[in-house]
């Protein structure tokens, strides 16, 4: 089984954002980046499938030098090789621009499965996997909770999450794209041994030219959605912030809940 997992680098969850002058993007200088958690669930599934069925797991990301941290971590977790689509052309794409780059990389190889997370924590488009599938002409299943796959088969069965406690089981022919829901299996940590081994694994860098693409077909230029400005969300309520040390804050809160709100 040859599996590709796509991983996106996003700002850390607890990041504090500062905007550039016209408010069109966040300033990256003070941000720390990590792998999009949803994509790590996809990598975990890929590694489990490989442990069961053999084959290989490749990890792909796109962007500037800093995304190498995502790929090094994937190699340390157990991926066999890394594919880094590198260059400014790939940056700030929407699902369309990003998916075209990924699809070109996939088309150049011979994968049975492409796994992605359900959505990214920064842009939350929740589309890239499905768009990759459509460009490649592959079937796709999103929001996958379980994968049932046997060796030497040309079909995969998956359990998908629908809403309100309803699930479905579907079957797709391979090759296929699956987007993996969080929580399927706990994400493994990179071990020291894994980190050492990662240094000797294949790390391939591909540019727009290497993929045979023109710069207009990927990234921000190709995007179908134009970004205007970023804004602080409107507060839905006037929040009373309670200051002080833990004890003082706890006492003030309980006092307000009893005497002002009357809910206790």
């Amino acid at each position: 089984m040859r599996i590709l997992t796509c991983l996106k680098q996003v700002p850390e969850r607890d990041s504090r954002y500062k905007l550039n002058q016209d408010g069109s993007r966040v300033l990256e200088e003070d941000l720390v980046f990590e792998t999009n958690e949803s994509d790590l669930f996809a990598l975990e599934e890929a590694l489990r499938l490989k442990e069961k069925l053999g084959g290989e797991v490749a990890a792909l990301s796109l962007g500037s030098d800093r995304v190498s941290k995502v790929l090094r971590n994937a190699l340390a977790m157990g991926a066999d090789r890394a594919i880094h689509l590198k260059g400014p052309e790939f940056e700030r794409g929407d699902a369309w621009g990003t998916a075209h780059a990924i699809a070109a990389a996939v088309a150049a190889e011979d994968f049975d499965l492409v796994l992605t997370g359900v959505q990214s924590e920064d842009m939350a488009f929740a589309q890239t996997g499905a768009v990759v599938a459509q460009i490649l002409g592959w079937p796709c299943a999103t929001i996958v909770m379980e994968i049932a796959l046997e060796a030497d088969t040309c079909r995969v069965q998956v359990k998908r999450e629908l809403e309100s406690n309803v699930f479905e089981r579907v079957e797709l022919p391979l090759p296929a794209v699956l987007t993996i829901q969080s929580g399927s299996h706990p994400i493994r940590y990179a071990t020291l041994r894994g980190i050492m081994q990662a240094k000797r694994k294949e790390y391939r860098v591909l540019t727009v030219e290497d993929l045979g693409l023109s710069a207009e077909t990927v990234g921000e230029v190709a995007a179908k959605v134009r970004h205007h400005r970023l804004l602080a969300p409107e507060r839905k309520k006037q929040t009373v912030m309670i200051d002080g040390g833990a004890e003082e804050a706890a006492r003030t809160l309980m006092d307000k809940l009893v005497n002002e709100v009357g809910v206790l």
């Binding site: 929407d94 699902a95 369309w96 998916a99 359900v118 939350a124 488009f125 929740a126 589309q127 499905a130 768009v131 599938a133 459509q134 460009i135 796709c140 299943a141 999103t142 929001i143 998908r160 999450e161 629908l162 809403e163 995007a223 179908k224 959605v225």
Partner: peptide
């Protein structure tokens, strides 16, 4: 919805359009 997340990106791509989600 989860159903929209499942088919609408494909539909948009078939129509050569983007989908502005959520």
């Amino acid at each position: 919805t989860y159903q929209t997340m499942d088919f609408a990106p494909t539909l948009a791509t078939m129509l050569d359009r983007g989908l502005i989600p959520n």
